[in-house]
């Protein structure tokens, strides 16, 4: 089996995996980073969004081998020993999550949005979330959370 090596949340990792191993499988099953979720099989729901080399990707639609040599950040890589990142904090403050299953993908997508657009409007946020489905919140508080998180990150 081929070897893949990458940096995940700042740590170098390496493993022999079948070529058909998806990045999300590698994260969940090999690295036990189970914060990244799988909610669909058609690349639509966004529960699996992580950052690869600084941009958001759907880890269910990428082979682990395609991330060979890359810098990967997952939801587990955001907080500082339990102290939440401002975007995570904004989700808590604004009740931007209910069951929590879509949440890691939402937060990772939100951070990519803010990187591109530090001051997103309501419509900017709604448009950006086209690839992230939530069944619980009706998006109202997710949009509020992301706008609040962006504001906090602007300082």
């Amino acid at each position: 089996m081929p070897t893949v090596s990458m940096t995940v949340n700042g740590k170098s990792v390496s493993a022999d995996v079948e070529p058909r191993t998806l990045l999300v499988q590698y994260l969940r099953e090999h690295l036990s980073l189970t914060g990244t979720h799988v909610g669909c099989d058609t690349s639509q729901c966004g529960a699996c969004v992580v950052h690869v080399d600084g941009v958001s990707v759907k880890s269910c639609t990428m082979l682990a081998a395609q991330a060979d040599g890359a810098e990967v950040v997952t939801i587990e890589g955001l907080d500082d020993n339990g102290t939440l990142h401002p975007m995570q904090e904004a989700f808590r403050d604004n009740h931007g999550l209910q069951c929590g299953f879509c949440t890691p993908g939402m937060v990772m997508s939100a951070l990519d949005l803010v990187k591109n657009n530090p001051s997103p409007s309501e419509q900017d946020v709604r448009d950006w979330l086209e690839g992230n489905i939530c069944r619980c919140t009706g998006y109202h508080n997710i949009v509020k959370s992301i706008q609040a998180g962006a504001a906090a990150m602007r300082g």
């Binding site: 941009v55 958001s56 990707v57 759907k58 639609t61 997508s109 990519d112 950006w128 690839g131």
Partner: peptide
């Protein structure tokens, strides 16, 4: 096209 994560790949 698609959504932001799709556009990144």
């Amino acid at each position: 096209i698609g959504d932001p994560a799709v556009r990144n790949r």
